[in-house]
Nucleic acid binder design. Structure first.
Lengths: 210, 210
DNA sequence: GACGACCTGTACCAAAAGGTACAGGTCGTT
DNA sequence: AACGACCTGTACCTTTTGGTACAGGTCGTC
């Protein structure tokens, strides 16, 4: 299967035995947009590797949400990974944003392989590290930057990842990404527009190049 | 050496070969209070395991600080651990708060052992996971809770960890822990006192039992 | 016991962020 | 083209947090 070959190549999984095992125990599924992958307080039974599509991962409380990160091909959701090892409840939400294809690997193999196969060990370790660093960076931004700066960073990030100057999100969606309210986003965006940083369209923000 | 035996026991390091290796390549050092262990932007050459004492780990920018966590016996600083694996620059500060004894293990062994020794693998993995979860929890608090609630949580946390109702920190030290300013802390603490939640002393806060 | 360094409390003001209310716009559907 | 659902802009107000200024307290030490 072509999906597996791509997966192995990207993750540098070279051991034939490991490749065999993955093919044997995993399952490839395609999920429509707007479906939950993990829900808060639910147990996670498998590790998900995203092959195609995009998954949004966030935290929420009663009245707010805040984005943690997006999972794109081919990354793995590290939350999923920590949950995998501890076999415990998830404290975050993950939902598909586009049609998404994932490889599901049952929990019990994940830890065991990391001791047997060097490339699996490397992959899981690397995953952890980069996620930890990312989270640390997010923490710092949240602690020290005001919302306007965080919003601008967010827009830049989106532009870079999607390779287009248009961010197709409404103000209230942006508010959810940043853990704030619609009005705040509206005001800041309007100010950005006055400053010549963005151009506003209906349900779209265009980031103007400097 | 008694320090090593305690270390092995706590970390469940059972392999005689690994115990040998650790003794051979590591170094035990005792550091006076208020010394930096890692500094932002500096390369980390070894992994530190705290055997005795207490290390404060935080982030800062121009005008503020915010606590990430404390390292106590026997935990390891995961930042140190991620840095260990990626052999890259640290983005946080770590400083001893009391006289602290640490075991220094050179970077190059840490990754390599985790593939050879099951207990080392388990230790590093567990370390990662719990740190990731902790950070996630901190992120959530920072995103959703107001300062008064975060301050109260912080006080409760200190009481639990130190086994005393007295938190021996000045208002400005508390402000640094939570990434805010002295005045804000003073006001909130005064309100807590009026509410009968705490009793204020000079450079000390006493958390009253409910 | 006088001095300096640092701590605490608070009045007052400013900035940032959040919330209410409402006017008007966009767009898909019927 | 009319309706409803949702989006955008904004005036206005409140709450939260931050910053200035200063009065007075605590404590070590010389």
């Amino acid at each position: 299967m072509q999906e597996y070959d791509q997966l192995f190549k990207t993750l540098h999984i070279v051991e034939p035995l490991l490749q065999e095992e993955i093919k044997k125990v995993s399952e490839i599924v395609t999920i429509p947009p707007n479906n939950y992958i993990v829900e808060q307080e639910k147990y996670i039974k498998w590790l998900a590797l995203v092959i195609k599509g995009r998954v949004r991962v966030w935290q929420e409380n009663e009245e707010r949400q805040i984005l943690l990160y997006y999972v794109r091909p081919i990354e793995t959701c590290v939350l999923s990974l920590t949950a995998t090892f501890r076999d415990c409840k998830s404290t975050v939400y993950a939902k598909t944003e586009t049609e998404t294809t994932i490889v599901k690997i049952p929990v019990r193999y994940v830890a065991q392989w990391s001791f047997v196969y060097k490339s699996w060990n490397t992959f899981t370790t690397q995953s952890f590290m980069s996620s930890y660093d990312d989270l640390l960076e997010s923490f710092k931004k949240l602690a020290f930057h005001k919302i306007d700066k965080r919003l601008y960073s967010y827009l830049e990030e989106q532009v870079m990842q999607n390779q287009t100057q248009i961010i197709a999100l409404s103000h209230s969606q942006l508010a959810k990404e940043l853990g704030t309210t619609r009005e705040v986003i509206s005001k800041i965006l309007k100010q950005f527009e006055l400053d010549g940083k963005v151009k506003l369209h209906f349900k779209k923000v265009e980031l103007l190049k400097k």
